[in-house]
């Protein structure tokens, strides 16, 4: 019996390969993603010293369509103070996201997560998912989904981190 249990234990880890869910006060993972519609790369290191909102979005995600204009406004209002908004797209095909951008204005940095590797690493539980990082790249606030009162919450959090 004990032998069978040991065999079972060998197989259980094979089924668990998802990234660990990110928590507050953890460092946001390093990334090196291409910008949407260009070959230019963007890394987490480039955001050093800035308050950052990292937002995972997709063209098929309805709440994302509501969130993007709100993030545009926040970015416009606070970019002079050192805010950076990084929008990471997780569409299957980059062209779908490019088509989306023809009809929807996205003023902040637009990156494309090829193969959804970063999304998987972050073990996102909702779409959209947003992380507010302080100047050291540490996660200070996490937003799961998008709700009506979120823009005010984002602003309050950003002000706290400036």
């Amino acid at each position: 019996m004990c032998r069978y249990f040991l065999i079972l234990c060998l197989f259980v880890p094979m089924t668990s390969w998802a990234g660990a869910k990110l928590k507050v006060d953890e460092k946001f993972p390093e990334y090196n993603l291409k910008e949407l519609g260009s070959e230019k790369k963007s890394t987490k290191a480039q955001t050093k010293g800035k308050v950052v909102i990292v937002d995972f979005w997709a063209s098929w995600c309805e709440p994302c369509k509501k969130e993007i204009p709100a993030l545009n406004k926040i970015f416009k209002k606070y970019k002079a103070k050192g805010l950076l908004v990084v929008g990471i797209n997780v569409d299957e095909a980059e062209n779908t996201a490019k088509d989306f951008l023809k009809d929807h204005k996205v003023d902040f940095l637009r990156l494309y997560d090829v193969g959804k590797k970063l999304a998987d690493q972050c073990a996102l539980a909702t779409m959209p998912s947003s992380f507010v990082l302080d100047r050291t790249g540490t996660i200070k606030f996490i937003h799961a989904g998008y709700h009506d009162g979120d823009p005010a919450k984002f602003e309050a959090e950003i002000k706290m981190l400036f």
Partner: peptide
């Protein structure tokens, strides 16, 4: 066990960011 591992609860849900085709 090998077949049973496929039914494991760890990864049976489609992740929210993988639901593009399901959202159509």
């Amino acid at each position: 066990i090998i077949f049973g591992a496929g039914c494991s609860t760890f990864r049976k849900r489609v992740a929210p960011f993988q639901r593009e085709f399901l959202a159509k």
